[in-house]
Design a protein around this nucleic acid. Structure first.
Lengths: 362, 362
DNA sequence: TAACATTACTAACGCGCGTTAATCAGAGGG
DNA sequence: CCCTCTGATTAACGCGCGTTAGTAATGTTA
């Protein structure tokens, strides 16, 4: 077990004090250091292979240089999430540029009460980003009252926490309007998650709103709640299909869930989009690779990650960000899984935009 | 800015010393504490909302309670990785049970030389797990010479580092044998990544080995290197198709890449498995949801994660694990994307196993 | 009653580093 | 020759906690 190399060792080798070492290695401009001494220190550090100890540094400076990404979801629901890597990729990208780290955590929905506070105090992070927040999360209010920098990836209506999100309601509305524009009037809906998750809630609201604007009656029987993964999408789609209810299209509020729906639809011998049009949400990379390619609402995970990071860092610097919440744009990407009702030729649906406009003007 | 609550505050409120507080909250059995005092301390901690500071604790105890997951890949290649969530899920699962944290990092291939050392010393981790190691990684040897607990998720032949992996070679061989068993003799191959990545290398070796055992000549022209994502799979498959080379099946060493291949095959008007049989690798959740369902080599990300964790923790406890490396089993899951050559009926390929045996006995 | 365990607790040091206040050498001005 | 001022460096404290060696009080035995 080789002895650990401390800044004292570097100081000894360079023939200076530990303070000087610290100043040099941290580029401390407030104190002047002669170029020669600086060089001596740097070369000593290099020959010794010195790396400052993160814990000691964090303790002394009260900064860990880490941020936490907290997922309020059990690990089993994380395993199949194709959107998560995009978020991680975006965060790792910006964090890497600033030599910061990313600490991943999850909290069990239902016992978040104390978790968050413990997380910041007891873990090695300067601030945190909360993924997939839930409306019924009691820890959320506790968080509002602390001075810990927090950014929500998502929205909690009425919360004073800063947040980054897409306009789930409007996006879902656009997606369903797209279907309506294609002539569909019997449209089912499978949510992306349980309704306490705000994104699920809002996307469902968007679905309802689109129906309302088109004067289509809302039928609760046509709505199912999925649970993040394809399996749940399969189950809920089967349930819809077996209900013998009449519908020609389905809005699935998550591409990952939509995959399961695809599979269920195929299994009963129906085809997409001839028998059922499908519109997803998230535009995960696979959306353009599955068959038929999936019409979906594009959400940029990278952008969400970067905006969250920016908001968080400005808070960590002590600034009060100008905007409480950032809303990012979405874009409906029409592909082959949705087409005009009744059509049987092979072409896609190019009349989309015109119809969409009419929907908005209704 | 409310003052931070320290163990001294708890001690004061409880009317005991800070040492006692530490003993109580850490369940220190070596020293006896009366139940009454313990209770006093605990309630004081609760009323104050005390959470021990992680950095201070880490500094004093020389344990951060975090492990690092290091990915040697640029963020852009992380974004579409459907296997990563499985690993994360598994790790978060076991880590959560032991109230440990997961620090995510990535290092740019090409400049890993110093990165690893810096990571452990300078970051807040007790040990690390390295994902997707590369043969040409100069940092690997540096790691071997340190006493930092490291576990490789993957294999570096000849390395003294502990590792967890599946037998990529044998698994790939099985996959290709499966195709050979179905009568295919012209079999193309698209790797999962560039060949310096050991998994890519070994899977390609398995492909070659299977051909050799079946006395099929190896044709380098039928091999393409992909790059983790569907896009690269698409590109390479297009390249194969446009080469006008003759082949009836393709072994794609990653399901994610295979998705791109699917798309390319469809695009030129061919169908799977009628014209081309496809076998993937990883058995990501989506494999059973795409059309046609994808024959693939099942690899349990959860199991890999758990085994890596176990190996790592035993090393962190100072034990020398009995086994240098753990090899986990894989299982070929035959689905609809592969079938006997020339068949045109709708049934799947039930004769697989018999053929497989003959392949192994050749 | 003295000698000795045993139990219950605490004083004090050190982990490695950031940072403030202080020191020191030398330059320049009177 | 003394004094001030600037530039270069350091002594020393504190971050919050784990932990060892030690003290004080209470039984326990001869």
């Amino acid at each position: 077990m080789s002895k650990r190399i401390t800044s004292q060792d570097v100081a000894d080798l360079a023939g200076v004090s530990r303070t000087t070492v610290s100043f040099v290695l941290n580029n401390e401009k407030r104190f002047s250091i002669s170029p020669e001494t600086a060089e001596k220190v740097r070369s000593a550090a290099k020959t010794l292979g010195y790396y400052p100890n993160a814990s000691a540094r964090a303790l002394a400076s009260n900064q860990t240089k880490n941020i936490g990404l907290i997922i309020s979801r059990a690990p089993q629901y994380i395993a199949t999430d194709p959107f998560l890597p995009q978020i991680l990729s975006g965060l790792l990208d910006v964090l890497g540029q600033n030599s910061q780290g990313l600490l991943l955590e999850w909290v069990e929905p239902g016992q978040q009460l104390e978790s968050y506070l413990e997380l910041t105090r007891a873990h090695h992070i300067d601030g945190m980003i909360l993924m997939t927040p839930r409306l019924d999360d009691p820890g959320m209010k506790a968080l509002e009252e602390t001075d810990i920098p927090v950014v929500l990836m998502g929205t909690i209506p009425g919360s004073t926490l800063h947040s980054v999100d897409v306009d789930n309601l409007a996006a879902a509305e656009t997606a369903v309007c797209h279907l309506i524009g294609l002539g569909h009037t019997k449209i089912a809906c499978i949510t992306n998650a349980a309704l306490p998750y705000t994104s699920a809630n809002q996307r469902l609201a968007g679905y309802k709103s689109a129906l309302e604007k088109a004067n289509i009656a809302y039928d609760p029987q046509l709505v199912r709640e999925a649970d993040f993964d394809p399996q749940s999408g399969y189950t809920q789609m089967r349930s819809l299909l077996e209900s013998k209810l009449d519908f020609s299209a389905v809005f699935v509020a998550s591409d990952n869930v939509a995959l399961g729906a695809y599979s269920a639809i195929r299994e009963v011998g129906l085809s997409i989009p001839e028998d059922i049009s499908v519109v997803g949400f998230d535009d995960i990379p696979l959306a353009s690779y599955i068959n038929p390619t999936l019409t979906s609402v594009a959400v940029s995970g990278h952008e969400i990650a970067v905006e969250s990071y920016n908001l968080l860092t400005s808070m960590m610097r002590g600034e009060e960000p100008e905007s409480l919440s950032v809303t990012l744009p979405t874009r409906l990407i029409a592909r082959r899984s949705s087409r005009e009702i009744g059509r049987s030729d092979k072409r896609g649906s190019e009349t989309k935009s015109a119809k969409l406009v009419s929907c908005f003007n209704n």
